[in-house]
Design a protein around this nucleic acid. Structure first.
Length: 424
RNA sequence: GGAGAGGUGCCGGAGUGGUCGAACGGGUCUGACUCGAAAUCAGGUGUACUGCUUGCAGUACCGAGGGUUCGAAUCCCUCCCUCUCCGCCA
Protein backbone atom coordinates (compact mmCIF):
# COMPACT_ATOMS: atom_id res chain seq x y z
CA UNK A 1 0.00 0.00 0.00
CA UNK A 2 1.16 3.50 -0.77
CA UNK A 3 1.09 6.29 1.79
CA UNK A 4 -2.19 8.22 1.45
CA UNK A 5 -0.43 11.53 1.77
CA UNK A 6 2.03 10.50 -0.93
CA UNK A 7 -0.86 9.70 -3.28
CA UNK A 8 -2.39 13.08 -2.57
CA UNK A 9 0.85 14.99 -3.08
CA UNK A 10 1.91 13.06 -6.20
CA UNK A 11 -1.35 12.46 -7.94
CA UNK A 12 -0.02 12.89 -11.49
CA UNK A 13 2.85 10.47 -10.98
CA UNK A 14 0.57 7.92 -9.35
CA UNK A 15 -1.86 8.19 -12.24
CA UNK A 16 0.94 7.78 -14.76
CA UNK A 17 2.25 4.75 -12.90
CA UNK A 18 -1.17 3.10 -12.90
CA UNK A 19 -1.33 3.59 -16.65
CA UNK A 20 2.15 2.16 -17.18
CA UNK A 21 1.29 -0.86 -15.14
CA UNK A 22 -1.82 -1.48 -17.13
CA UNK A 23 -4.06 -1.82 -14.09
CA UNK A 24 -7.24 -0.06 -13.11
CA UNK A 25 -7.29 1.92 -9.90
CA UNK A 26 -8.74 5.22 -8.85
CA UNK A 27 -6.28 7.51 -7.05
CA UNK A 28 -8.70 10.46 -7.07
CA UNK A 29 -11.10 8.39 -5.04
CA UNK A 30 -8.36 7.59 -2.54
CA UNK A 31 -7.52 11.28 -2.16
CA UNK A 32 -11.15 12.25 -1.73
CA UNK A 33 -11.74 9.53 0.89
CA UNK A 34 -8.52 10.48 2.63
CA UNK A 35 -9.61 14.10 2.93
CA UNK A 36 -12.97 13.02 4.25
CA UNK A 37 -11.30 10.73 6.75
CA UNK A 38 -9.13 13.52 8.09
CA UNK A 39 -12.10 15.79 8.55
CA UNK A 40 -14.02 13.10 10.40
CA UNK A 41 -11.03 12.35 12.62
CA UNK A 42 -10.98 15.94 13.79
CA UNK A 43 -14.69 15.91 14.39
CA UNK A 44 -14.44 12.68 16.33
CA UNK A 45 -11.53 13.82 18.48
CA UNK A 46 -13.35 17.00 19.41
CA UNK A 47 -16.40 14.98 20.49
CA UNK A 48 -14.25 12.61 22.51
CA UNK A 49 -12.57 15.56 24.17
CA UNK A 50 -15.98 16.81 25.20
CA UNK A 51 -16.92 13.38 26.51
CA UNK A 52 -13.75 13.15 28.59
CA UNK A 53 -14.31 16.64 29.91
CA UNK A 54 -17.88 15.77 30.83
CA UNK A 55 -16.89 12.56 32.58
CA UNK A 56 -14.15 14.46 34.43
CA UNK A 57 -16.68 16.78 35.99
CA UNK A 58 -18.38 13.84 37.68
CA UNK A 59 -15.42 12.57 39.64
CA UNK A 60 -16.31 14.02 43.04
CA UNK A 61 -19.52 14.41 44.99
CA UNK A 62 -22.19 16.45 43.24
CA UNK A 63 -25.66 17.80 43.78
CA UNK A 64 -28.02 15.16 42.37
CA UNK A 65 -29.60 17.59 39.86
CA UNK A 66 -26.20 18.72 38.66
CA UNK A 67 -25.05 15.14 38.21
CA UNK A 68 -28.24 14.22 36.38
CA UNK A 69 -27.69 17.12 33.98
CA UNK A 70 -24.17 16.00 33.23
CA UNK A 71 -25.31 12.44 32.67
CA UNK A 72 -27.88 13.64 30.15
CA UNK A 73 -25.20 15.64 28.40
CA UNK A 74 -22.97 12.57 28.38
CA UNK A 75 -25.69 10.44 26.87
CA UNK A 76 -26.17 12.91 24.07
CA UNK A 77 -22.42 12.97 23.38
CA UNK A 78 -22.32 9.20 23.41
CA UNK A 79 -24.93 9.00 20.68
CA UNK A 80 -23.21 11.60 18.58
CA UNK A 81 -19.89 9.80 18.89
CA UNK A 82 -21.45 6.49 17.92
CA UNK A 83 -22.92 7.93 14.75
CA UNK A 84 -19.67 9.63 13.74
CA UNK A 85 -17.78 6.42 14.44
CA UNK A 86 -20.16 4.55 12.20
CA UNK A 87 -19.46 7.02 9.42
CA UNK A 88 -15.74 6.60 10.11
CA UNK A 89 -15.93 2.80 9.81
CA UNK A 90 -17.56 2.97 6.42
CA UNK A 91 -15.09 5.60 5.27
CA UNK A 92 -12.06 3.62 6.42
CA UNK A 93 -13.24 0.46 4.70
CA UNK A 94 -13.79 2.33 1.46
CA UNK A 95 -10.44 4.05 1.75
CA UNK A 96 -8.64 0.79 2.42
CA UNK A 97 -10.39 -0.95 -0.45
CA UNK A 98 -9.53 1.85 -2.87
CA UNK A 99 -5.96 2.17 -1.63
CA UNK A 100 -4.94 -1.47 -1.95
CA UNK A 101 -5.74 -1.29 -5.66
CA UNK A 102 -3.07 1.36 -6.16
CA UNK A 103 0.15 -0.42 -7.15
CA UNK A 104 3.57 0.50 -5.88
CA UNK A 105 5.50 3.13 -7.83
CA UNK A 106 7.96 1.74 -10.35
CA UNK A 107 11.72 2.29 -10.47
CA UNK A 108 12.51 4.97 -13.07
CA UNK A 109 14.72 2.50 -14.96
CA UNK A 110 12.12 -0.27 -15.10
CA UNK A 111 11.15 -0.75 -18.73
CA UNK A 112 7.68 0.52 -19.55
CA UNK A 113 5.51 -2.13 -21.17
CA UNK A 114 2.28 -4.05 -20.98
CA UNK A 115 3.12 -7.73 -20.63
CA UNK A 116 5.93 -10.21 -20.20
CA UNK A 117 6.94 -9.91 -23.85
CA UNK A 118 8.01 -6.36 -23.05
CA UNK A 119 10.49 -7.46 -20.40
CA UNK A 120 13.99 -6.34 -21.22
CA UNK A 121 16.71 -8.97 -21.51
CA UNK A 122 19.79 -7.54 -19.86
CA UNK A 123 22.29 -10.38 -19.79
CA UNK A 124 22.97 -13.99 -20.68
CA UNK A 125 25.22 -16.37 -18.86
CA UNK A 126 26.48 -19.86 -19.70
CA UNK A 127 26.33 -21.69 -22.99
CA UNK A 128 23.15 -23.10 -24.39
CA UNK A 129 23.99 -26.78 -24.98
CA UNK A 130 23.88 -28.10 -28.51
CA UNK A 131 23.01 -31.75 -28.62
CA UNK A 132 23.87 -34.06 -31.48
CA UNK A 133 20.43 -35.57 -30.98
CA UNK A 134 16.86 -34.49 -30.48
CA UNK A 135 16.62 -33.13 -26.93
CA UNK A 136 13.92 -34.65 -24.78
CA UNK A 137 11.79 -32.75 -22.34
CA UNK A 138 11.97 -33.45 -18.61
CA UNK A 139 8.73 -35.40 -18.58
CA UNK A 140 10.11 -37.90 -21.04
CA UNK A 141 13.47 -38.05 -19.30
CA UNK A 142 11.88 -38.48 -15.89
CA UNK A 143 9.71 -41.28 -17.18
CA UNK A 144 12.62 -43.14 -18.75
CA UNK A 145 14.72 -42.85 -15.61
CA UNK A 146 11.75 -43.47 -13.30
CA UNK A 147 12.22 -40.17 -11.47
CA UNK A 148 8.73 -38.70 -11.33
CA UNK A 149 5.29 -40.29 -11.18
CA UNK A 150 2.49 -38.01 -12.34
CA UNK A 151 -0.14 -40.67 -12.92
CA UNK A 152 -0.39 -42.10 -9.48
CA UNK A 153 -0.17 -38.60 -8.02
CA UNK A 154 -3.16 -37.62 -10.17
CA UNK A 155 -5.14 -40.54 -8.79
CA UNK A 156 -4.16 -39.84 -5.21
CA UNK A 157 -4.07 -36.05 -5.14
CA UNK A 158 -5.21 -34.68 -8.49
CA UNK A 159 -3.64 -33.32 -11.63
CA UNK A 160 -0.49 -31.25 -11.33
CA UNK A 161 0.76 -33.24 -8.38
CA UNK A 162 3.69 -35.59 -8.57
CA UNK A 163 5.71 -38.12 -6.69
CA UNK A 164 9.43 -37.59 -6.92
CA UNK A 165 11.13 -40.98 -7.04
CA UNK A 166 14.57 -42.46 -6.67
CA UNK A 167 17.41 -40.07 -7.51
CA UNK A 168 14.96 -37.19 -8.01
CA UNK A 169 14.28 -37.29 -4.28
CA UNK A 170 17.96 -36.93 -3.53
CA UNK A 171 18.23 -34.29 -6.22
CA UNK A 172 15.61 -32.19 -4.46
CA UNK A 173 17.43 -32.48 -1.17
CA UNK A 174 20.77 -31.78 -2.84
CA UNK A 175 19.53 -28.63 -4.57
CA UNK A 176 18.07 -27.44 -1.29
CA UNK A 177 21.26 -28.05 0.62
CA UNK A 178 23.42 -26.51 -2.09
CA UNK A 179 21.34 -23.34 -2.15
CA UNK A 180 21.33 -23.07 1.64
CA UNK A 181 25.11 -23.30 1.73
CA UNK A 182 25.38 -20.42 -0.73
CA UNK A 183 22.94 -18.34 1.30
CA UNK A 184 24.61 -19.06 4.60
CA UNK A 185 27.90 -17.94 3.10
CA UNK A 186 26.24 -14.64 2.19
CA UNK A 187 25.10 -14.04 5.74
CA UNK A 188 21.50 -15.20 5.57
CA UNK A 189 19.81 -16.60 8.65
CA UNK A 190 18.51 -20.00 7.59
CA UNK A 191 14.97 -21.01 8.46
CA UNK A 192 12.43 -23.65 7.63
CA UNK A 193 9.16 -21.78 7.82
CA UNK A 194 5.61 -22.91 8.52
CA UNK A 195 3.73 -23.98 5.39
CA UNK A 196 0.56 -22.41 6.77
CA UNK A 197 -0.09 -18.76 7.55
CA UNK A 198 -2.96 -16.65 8.80
CA UNK A 199 -5.11 -14.87 6.23
CA UNK A 200 -4.12 -11.41 7.51
CA UNK A 201 -0.47 -12.18 6.90
CA UNK A 202 -1.16 -13.59 3.45
CA UNK A 203 -3.08 -10.43 2.64
CA UNK A 204 -0.51 -8.12 4.15
CA UNK A 205 2.24 -9.60 2.03
CA UNK A 206 0.07 -8.86 -0.99
CA UNK A 207 -1.72 -12.05 -1.88
CA UNK A 208 -5.44 -12.48 -2.11
CA UNK A 209 -6.42 -15.39 0.15
CA UNK A 210 -10.02 -15.71 -0.98
CA UNK A 211 -12.20 -16.10 -4.00
CA UNK A 212 -12.33 -17.97 -7.27
CA UNK A 213 -9.36 -16.17 -8.71
CA UNK A 214 -7.11 -16.64 -5.75
CA UNK A 215 -4.05 -18.77 -6.26
CA UNK A 216 -4.07 -19.59 -2.54
CA UNK A 217 -5.51 -22.65 -0.87
CA UNK A 218 -7.58 -21.57 2.13
CA UNK A 219 -8.04 -24.04 4.97
CA UNK A 220 -11.73 -24.02 5.66
CA UNK A 221 -12.85 -22.80 9.04
CA UNK A 222 -9.38 -22.03 10.34
CA UNK A 223 -8.64 -18.52 9.04
CA UNK A 224 -5.40 -19.84 7.64
CA UNK A 225 -4.01 -20.73 4.22
CA UNK A 226 -1.35 -22.93 2.73
CA UNK A 227 1.49 -20.63 1.77
CA UNK A 228 2.23 -20.03 -1.90
CA UNK A 229 5.76 -19.01 -1.05
CA UNK A 230 7.96 -18.49 2.00
CA UNK A 231 7.81 -14.79 1.15
CA UNK A 232 4.57 -14.91 3.13
CA UNK A 233 6.05 -16.44 6.25
CA UNK A 234 9.31 -14.50 6.05
CA UNK A 235 7.52 -11.21 5.42
CA UNK A 236 5.09 -12.02 8.20
CA UNK A 237 7.96 -12.80 10.57
CA UNK A 238 8.25 -9.17 11.69
CA UNK A 239 4.68 -8.06 10.95
CA UNK A 240 3.58 -5.44 13.43
CA UNK A 241 7.05 -5.13 14.90
CA UNK A 242 10.05 -2.86 14.99
CA UNK A 243 13.09 -4.34 13.28
CA UNK A 244 16.61 -3.48 14.31
CA UNK A 245 18.45 -2.39 11.20
CA UNK A 246 21.30 -0.68 13.03
CA UNK A 247 23.61 -3.53 12.09
CA UNK A 248 22.61 -3.45 8.41
CA UNK A 249 19.92 -5.33 6.49
CA UNK A 250 18.30 -8.45 7.96
CA UNK A 251 18.77 -11.34 5.57
CA UNK A 252 16.59 -14.39 5.97
CA UNK A 253 16.38 -17.56 3.96
CA UNK A 254 13.37 -19.82 4.21
CA UNK A 255 12.74 -23.35 3.07
CA UNK A 256 9.08 -24.06 2.55
CA UNK A 257 6.65 -26.00 0.48
CA UNK A 258 4.64 -23.81 -1.84
CA UNK A 259 1.02 -24.52 -2.66
CA UNK A 260 -0.75 -22.93 -5.60
CA UNK A 261 -4.18 -23.58 -7.00
CA UNK A 262 -3.19 -22.61 -10.54
CA UNK A 263 -6.81 -22.72 -11.60
CA UNK A 264 -7.08 -22.97 -15.36
CA UNK A 265 -3.36 -23.18 -16.00
CA UNK A 266 -2.72 -25.79 -18.65
CA UNK A 267 -0.99 -26.32 -21.95
CA UNK A 268 2.37 -27.08 -23.44
CA UNK A 269 4.22 -24.36 -21.55
CA UNK A 270 3.11 -25.49 -18.13
CA UNK A 271 3.46 -29.23 -18.58
CA UNK A 272 5.19 -31.64 -16.27
CA UNK A 273 6.90 -30.06 -13.28
CA UNK A 274 6.77 -26.53 -14.68
CA UNK A 275 3.49 -25.49 -13.10
CA UNK A 276 2.42 -27.67 -10.19
CA UNK A 277 0.24 -27.37 -7.11
CA UNK A 278 3.04 -28.12 -4.69
CA UNK A 279 6.78 -27.65 -4.78
CA UNK A 280 9.70 -26.87 -2.52
CA UNK A 281 11.34 -23.49 -2.68
CA UNK A 282 14.21 -21.78 -0.94
CA UNK A 283 13.39 -18.11 -0.67
CA UNK A 284 15.48 -15.10 0.24
CA UNK A 285 13.90 -12.23 2.13
CA UNK A 286 15.48 -8.98 3.27
CA UNK A 287 14.51 -6.09 5.50
CA UNK A 288 16.54 -2.92 5.05
CA UNK A 289 16.62 0.85 5.27
CA UNK A 290 15.23 2.76 2.28
CA UNK A 291 18.66 3.91 1.13
CA UNK A 292 19.92 0.32 0.89
CA UNK A 293 17.19 -1.39 -1.10
CA UNK A 294 18.41 -0.61 -4.62
CA UNK A 295 21.83 -2.12 -3.91
CA UNK A 296 20.34 -5.03 -2.04
CA UNK A 297 18.15 -5.96 -5.00
CA UNK A 298 21.32 -6.21 -7.09
CA UNK A 299 22.86 -8.39 -4.42
CA UNK A 300 19.90 -10.77 -4.39
CA UNK A 301 20.06 -10.96 -8.16
CA UNK A 302 23.77 -11.71 -8.08
CA UNK A 303 23.19 -14.53 -5.58
CA UNK A 304 20.60 -16.05 -7.90
CA UNK A 305 23.13 -15.81 -10.73
CA UNK A 306 25.78 -17.40 -8.54
CA UNK A 307 23.51 -20.33 -7.76
CA UNK A 308 22.66 -21.03 -11.38
CA UNK A 309 26.20 -20.39 -12.62
CA UNK A 310 27.38 -22.87 -10.01
CA UNK A 311 25.02 -25.46 -11.41
CA UNK A 312 26.21 -24.74 -14.95
CA UNK A 313 22.72 -23.98 -16.12
CA UNK A 314 22.54 -21.34 -18.86
CA UNK A 315 20.21 -18.48 -18.11
CA UNK A 316 19.30 -14.96 -19.02
CA UNK A 317 18.21 -12.09 -16.82
CA UNK A 318 15.25 -9.91 -17.67
CA UNK A 319 14.34 -6.54 -16.23
CA UNK A 320 10.60 -6.87 -15.69
CA UNK A 321 8.47 -4.25 -17.41
CA UNK A 322 5.94 -2.10 -15.58
CA UNK A 323 2.93 -4.11 -16.75
CA UNK A 324 4.40 -7.36 -15.43
CA UNK A 325 5.65 -6.15 -12.05
CA UNK A 326 2.64 -7.07 -9.95
CA UNK A 327 1.25 -4.77 -7.26
CA UNK A 328 3.93 -4.62 -4.58
CA UNK A 329 7.14 -4.58 -6.67
CA UNK A 330 9.05 -1.41 -7.38
CA UNK A 331 11.52 -3.28 -9.52
CA UNK A 332 11.89 -6.93 -10.41
CA UNK A 333 14.42 -9.14 -12.15
CA UNK A 334 13.69 -12.66 -13.35
CA UNK A 335 16.21 -15.36 -14.14
CA UNK A 336 15.08 -17.53 -17.00
CA UNK A 337 16.92 -20.80 -17.40
CA UNK A 338 17.44 -22.44 -20.72
CA UNK A 339 15.20 -25.49 -20.95
CA UNK A 340 16.10 -27.57 -24.01
CA UNK A 341 12.84 -29.54 -23.88
CA UNK A 342 10.62 -26.51 -23.68
CA UNK A 343 8.60 -25.76 -26.83
CA UNK A 344 9.87 -27.20 -30.12
CA UNK A 345 13.52 -26.24 -29.90
CA UNK A 346 14.05 -25.27 -26.31
CA UNK A 347 13.13 -22.02 -24.68
CA UNK A 348 13.74 -19.86 -21.66
CA UNK A 349 11.66 -20.66 -18.59
CA UNK A 350 11.40 -18.56 -15.45
CA UNK A 351 13.27 -20.07 -12.53
CA UNK A 352 13.72 -17.19 -10.12
CA UNK A 353 12.37 -13.76 -9.48
CA UNK A 354 13.63 -11.04 -7.19
CA UNK A 355 11.76 -7.89 -6.24
CA UNK A 356 12.29 -4.70 -4.33
CA UNK A 357 8.94 -3.88 -2.75
CA UNK A 358 10.24 -0.70 -1.07
CA UNK A 359 7.92 0.20 1.82
CA UNK A 360 4.78 -1.04 0.05
CA UNK A 361 4.58 -4.37 1.89
CA UNK A 362 5.96 -3.00 5.14
CA UNK A 363 3.27 -0.33 5.37
CA UNK A 364 0.53 -2.92 5.22
CA UNK A 365 2.34 -5.34 7.50
CA UNK A 366 3.38 -2.63 9.97
CA UNK A 367 7.13 -3.30 9.84
CA UNK A 368 9.18 -0.31 10.97
CA UNK A 369 12.63 0.56 12.20
CA UNK A 370 14.09 3.40 14.22
CA UNK A 371 16.18 5.56 11.94
CA UNK A 372 19.31 7.44 12.98
CA UNK A 373 17.32 10.64 13.51
CA UNK A 374 15.14 8.78 16.02
CA UNK A 375 12.13 8.67 13.71
CA UNK A 376 10.25 5.44 13.06
CA UNK A 377 10.10 4.63 9.38
CA UNK A 378 8.73 1.75 7.35
CA UNK A 379 11.43 -0.70 6.36
CA UNK A 380 11.99 -1.73 2.78
CA UNK A 381 11.41 -5.38 1.98
CA UNK A 382 12.88 -7.47 -0.81
CA UNK A 383 12.42 -11.05 -1.83
CA UNK A 384 14.07 -13.38 -4.25
CA UNK A 385 14.02 -17.04 -5.20
CA UNK A 386 17.20 -18.90 -4.37
CA UNK A 387 15.85 -22.00 -6.02
CA UNK A 388 12.42 -23.28 -6.88
CA UNK A 389 13.29 -26.95 -6.75
CA UNK A 390 10.81 -28.36 -9.25
CA UNK A 391 11.92 -25.95 -11.95
CA UNK A 392 15.53 -26.45 -10.94
CA UNK A 393 15.04 -30.14 -11.59
CA UNK A 394 13.59 -29.41 -15.03
CA UNK A 395 16.61 -27.31 -15.94
CA UNK A 396 19.03 -29.91 -14.65
CA UNK A 397 17.44 -32.90 -16.33
CA UNK A 398 17.06 -31.17 -19.66
CA UNK A 399 20.46 -29.47 -19.83
CA UNK A 400 22.44 -32.42 -18.54
CA UNK A 401 20.74 -35.13 -20.57
CA UNK A 402 22.90 -37.51 -22.57
CA UNK A 403 22.09 -39.22 -25.82
CA UNK A 404 21.30 -42.50 -24.05
CA UNK A 405 18.80 -40.78 -21.76
CA UNK A 406 21.10 -40.74 -18.73
CA UNK A 407 21.60 -37.54 -16.78
CA UNK A 408 24.91 -36.06 -15.64
CA UNK A 409 25.02 -34.26 -12.32
CA UNK A 410 26.90 -30.92 -12.27
CA UNK A 411 30.09 -31.10 -10.28
CA UNK A 412 29.01 -28.55 -7.69
CA UNK A 413 26.08 -30.73 -6.80
CA UNK A 414 27.84 -34.11 -6.55
CA UNK A 415 28.94 -33.56 -2.92
CA UNK A 416 25.28 -33.17 -2.08
CA UNK A 417 23.77 -35.93 -4.21
CA UNK A 418 26.45 -38.50 -3.64
CA UNK A 419 26.24 -39.65 -7.26
CA UNK A 420 27.46 -38.09 -10.49
CA UNK A 421 24.98 -39.47 -12.95
CA UNK A 422 21.55 -41.00 -13.20
CA UNK A 423 21.48 -44.06 -15.41
CA UNK A 424 19.40 -47.17 -15.80
C1' G B 1 -9.23 -32.28 22.52
C1' G B 2 -10.45 -31.54 28.22
C1' A B 3 -9.53 -28.72 33.09
C1' G B 4 -7.24 -24.58 35.29
C1' A B 5 -4.02 -19.98 35.74
C1' G B 6 -2.41 -15.79 33.37
C1' G B 7 -1.24 -11.56 29.46
C1' U B 8 -0.31 -4.02 32.51
C1' G B 9 5.40 0.76 30.52
C1' C B 10 12.57 -1.02 28.93
C1' C B 11 12.12 -5.13 33.02
C1' G B 12 9.70 -6.87 37.56
C1' G B 13 5.13 -5.88 39.65
C1' A B 14 0.43 -3.03 42.03
C1' G B 15 -4.19 -1.52 40.46
C1' U B 16 -11.83 -0.54 44.89
C1' G B 17 -15.90 1.53 37.47
C1' G B 18 -14.46 8.28 38.15
C1' U B 19 -8.46 11.61 41.57
C1' C B 20 -5.03 6.00 36.38
C1' G B 21 -0.96 7.13 31.18
C1' A B 22 -1.11 4.12 35.29
C1' A B 23 1.55 3.00 42.56
C1' C B 24 6.13 0.74 44.03
C1' G B 25 10.96 -1.38 42.81
C1' G B 26 14.77 -2.02 39.16
C1' G B 27 17.00 0.01 34.80
C1' U B 28 18.25 4.46 32.42
C1' C B 29 19.12 9.87 31.77
C1' U B 30 20.15 14.85 33.98
C1' G B 31 21.83 17.58 38.13
C1' A B 32 24.15 17.95 43.19
C1' C B 33 28.15 16.04 46.32
C1' U B 34 33.56 14.24 44.53
C1' C B 35 40.18 15.33 42.05
C1' G B 36 37.45 11.16 39.83
C1' A B 37 34.37 7.02 40.87
C1' A B 38 31.11 4.30 44.09
C1' A B 39 27.42 5.26 47.52
C1' U B 40 23.80 8.96 48.57
C1' C B 41 20.27 12.85 47.43
C1' A B 42 16.98 15.68 43.89
C1' G B 43 14.55 15.66 39.28
C1' G B 44 13.24 13.52 34.58
C1' U B 45 12.27 9.06 31.72
C1' G B 46 6.32 5.28 26.84
C1' U B 47 4.44 5.15 21.76
C1' A B 48 1.49 6.89 17.69
C1' C B 49 -1.42 10.44 15.34
C1' U B 50 -3.55 15.53 14.91
C1' G B 51 -3.44 20.95 15.60
C1' C B 52 -1.05 25.53 16.56
C1' U B 53 4.62 25.43 16.76
C1' U B 54 11.66 26.22 19.67
C1' G B 55 6.97 24.42 23.60
C1' C B 56 2.19 23.34 24.38
C1' A B 57 -2.71 21.30 23.63
C1' G B 58 -5.88 17.32 22.03
C1' U B 59 -6.95 12.08 20.80
C1' A B 60 -5.80 6.94 21.10
C1' C B 61 -3.19 2.89 23.28
C1' C B 62 -2.91 -1.65 29.93
C1' G B 63 -2.74 -9.09 24.42
C1' A B 64 -6.60 -8.17 19.93
C1' G B 65 -11.62 -7.08 18.67
C1' G B 66 -16.59 -6.19 20.22
C1' G B 67 -20.24 -4.89 24.25
C1' U B 68 -22.31 -2.61 28.99
C1' U B 69 -21.86 2.58 31.14
C1' C B 70 -22.59 9.56 31.45
C1' G B 71 -17.49 7.42 32.36
C1' A B 72 -13.68 0.95 31.54
C1' A B 73 -6.82 -1.28 32.73
C1' U B 74 -11.04 -2.49 36.12
C1' C B 75 -17.59 -5.54 34.42
C1' C B 76 -19.44 -8.91 30.08
C1' C B 77 -18.57 -11.63 25.25
C1' U B 78 -15.40 -13.55 21.26
C1' C B 79 -10.61 -14.50 19.62
C1' C B 80 -5.14 -14.88 20.03
C1' C B 81 -0.98 -16.13 22.88
C1' U B 82 1.78 -18.12 27.32
C1' C B 83 2.06 -21.49 31.51
C1' U B 84 0.38 -26.04 34.54
C1' C B 85 -2.17 -30.75 34.61
C1' C B 86 -4.77 -34.69 31.74
C1' G B 87 -5.61 -37.05 26.97
C1' C B 88 -3.55 -37.99 22.07
C1' C B 89 0.41 -38.27 19.13
C1' A B 90 5.87 -37.79 15.77
Amino acid sequence: MLDFKFIKDNLDAVRENIKNRNVSADPEKVVSLYDQRNAVIQELEELRRQRNENAGKMKGKLEPELRQGLIEEGKALKEKIASVEERMDVLLKELQAAAVLIPNMAHPDAPVGKEDKDNLEILRSGNVPSFGFKAKDHVELAEEMDLVDFENAARVSGSKFYYLKNEAVLLELALTRYALDVLQKHGFTLTITPDIAREEIVEGVGFNPRGEESNIYALEGTGTCLVGTAEITLGGYYAGQMVDLSGGPLLMAGVSHCFRREAGAAGQYSKGLYRVHQFTKIEMFAYCKPEDSDDLLMKLRSIEEEIFNGLGIPFRVVDTCTGDLGGPAYRKFDLEAWMPGRGDEGDWGEVTSTSNCTDYQARRLGIRFKDEDGKNRYAHTLNGTAIAVSRGIIALLENYQQEDGSIRIPEALVPYTGFSEIRR
